[in-house]
Design a protein around this nucleic acid. Structure first.
Lengths: 348, 348
DNA sequence: TTGTAAGCGTTATCAT
DNA sequence: ATGATAACGCTTACAA
């Protein structure tokens, strides 16, 4: 790209940093220092440079800096979807924390497909992100290798299990539903219905289901196949699935939903069907979307501080990138919020 | 950064492109061409290079490319918040469209603050984004100047008015509420309540309110001050504000909410208060979040294809960046969806 | 069609 | 504390 070498190159100084240096009557190195390492530059120069920068309106060129530094100051995150309250809040947390440390957030969407996720991650690496954040622990088989080959640190969000401690930041999905189920068993429930999301692409959902099963098994109980249904996580789907389960006699006395939207759907449908909640039937969910506590019968659920998940995840990765000690807790609290939708099992 | 110049520079070829070139026995230029402009390279070379790229696992260095090209292949978008169904869907649209054209989406959050928005935009420009996308038309006074000085194209989303045609992609908020209001007037309503968001930082909300006022004025009507309230756009706030309005006698016979969450709150509170909807009172909202159509009394509202807004906005900007003719419609449809929450005004 | 090499705007090493 | 200057890894004008 040999452009005349006339105006622009070593001499001409049409360009940002060089221009500033020339006007301020210092070297480019000094300008660079004044920006990135101010205390090593004498106060007078520092000030002079600052004023030139302002008057010229110079904005440093990120790509050039990234090239010279070999650090992009960016972290990439891939979410299955953004249309989910919990993810949205996590992104806000991520974004805030990233910004706080001068990092930019790059965002992509996998639509619950491991292939697409891998694709997005490749793009991120190509863009030079310093680290990658994913949701869950279930990824494309080549993903881990690819990332480590390119020395790009990566952590998972919204998942925690002791077995993979350190790899993920989030709630222990299994434990949360194990506890929630135990709470319901303690209320006398013996027949459970479960509305779950597709587990093939969603390891959080799978962990939750396993938590339910494990808790029940300890009491010699299990979910009957006809009381276990799987679908998408919309409110409408929640209604539909709920209705399907309730057609099966004997009816369950408690319905656990793998997701907030499903729970809202179940609740709305229960009311449409004239079922008394919690007298005849208890309903519990997961997530804490606002509507759950505002419905006429507020829904018992598991609350995760999603924004905190995002914040911590960003912090963790930035610590790694900057070679600091990791100073976060990997497991995030999953609080069981008991509301009016759950109560003692009806007398047999 | 003179590193020994031993291994690494002109000769050593430890680096990506250079390494590939060496192994394939071609020049760096050819490799570059093979990647970016394949048809100009002979098939055999193209293939040889491709196989080397694969075997070496080379991933091009985005920053270097950006530096050489002076194009980052990225567009930055700043949203007031991400925790809003409509914005989330717009982001999905944006992201998909951007990806389709090989662009990356950079995301930030302004928290409804013009200052913060400007800050975020500065960061984006520094990062070298090729274009910027914002929400609404109300920005920091220096924003436009800054952007044009740096020659970064910018468009607004979720706003349309004939006066600024071409600057924004979205629905005509004013027109939408003008029409919605006329529809209600046509049902015989004369006393209107309005639940709105803070207009100081939200020009969409302001346009919507103005649409209501203008429609009413044409019938010689106006919203009484005590029937006009402003607040945040949460469900809880909707309940609160609704209750406040309904304390004022004479009660309005129709309540218009500037936002879906407010409308849901109003609806829930109306039921809690034992008000018959729509017999005694009609409720209408804006946005189309799923819950609105699933509640026992579905809520009349204005539906905007938010994902389409994002998609078109991205398309528009990418067209601009790549010097193409802009091939999108700036105004997005705002469909009035009539549901059970609205009906004829009660007989006086 | 392919090669050569300058240059994109910073940073950081080394010398002063 | 400052200056001179070689990289950083890629693209592209120009020559062959």
């Amino acid at each position: 790209m040999p452009r005349g070498k006339s105006e622009n190159s070593r001499n001409g100084a049409r360009t940002g940093l060089r221009r500033v240096a020339e006007i301020a009557g210092v070297s480019t190195a000094t300008v660079s220092r004044a920006m990135n390492n101010p205390d090593v530059v004498s106060p007078e120069l520092r000030e002079r440079i600052a004023s030139v920068v302002k008057s010229v309106g110079w904005v440093p060129h990120g790509a050039a800096r990234a090239l010279a530094t070999r650090r992009a100051g960016a972290i990439g995150a891939v979410f299955p979807t953004l249309s989910h309250g919990d993810f949205a809040r996590a992104i806000e947390g991520l974004q805030q924390e990233a910004a706080k440390h001068g990092f930019t957030l790059l965002l992509a969407c996998s639509e619950y497909s491991a292939d697409l996720e891998f694709e997005q991650v490749r793009k991120f690496v190509e863009r030079g992100v310093d680290a990658v954040l994913l949701v869950g622990e279930l990824h494309h088989p080549e993903l881990a290798g690819f990332l480590s080959r390119h020395k790009v640190p990566c952590r998972n969000m919204f998942f925690y299990s002791p077995a993979t401690h350190g790899q993920s930041i989030g709630p222990d999905n299994h434990k949360a539903l194990y506890r929630l189920t135990n709470y319901l068993v303690g209320l006398g429930h013996r027949r459970f219905g479960v509305l779950a999301q597709d587990v093939a692409t969603n390891d959080r959902a799978r962990a939750r289901i396993q938590g339910i099963r494990d808790a029940l098994a300890e009491h010699g109980l299990a979910v009957r196949p006809e009381h276990f249904v799987i679908g998408k996580w919309t409110i409408r789907e929640g209604r539909e699935l709920f209705r399907r389960i309730l057609r099966q006699a004997p009816r369950p006395t408690a319905v656990i939903c793998g997701n907030g939207y499903l729970a809202v759907g179940a609740m709305l449908e229960s009311q449409a069907m004239g079922i008394k909640v919690p007298e005849e039937l208890s309903i519990a969910g997961y997530d804490d979307i606002e509507i759950m506590q505002e419905l006429p019968i507020p829904i018992t659920t598991v609350r995760v501080q999603s924004q905190e998940v995002g914040r911590r995840a960003a912090e963790c990765l930035i610590d790694m990138v900057e070679g600091r000690e990791i100073a976060i807790a990997f497991e995030c609290e999953a609080e069981i919020v008991i509301r009016a939708s759950s109560g003692p099992a009806p007398a047999a």
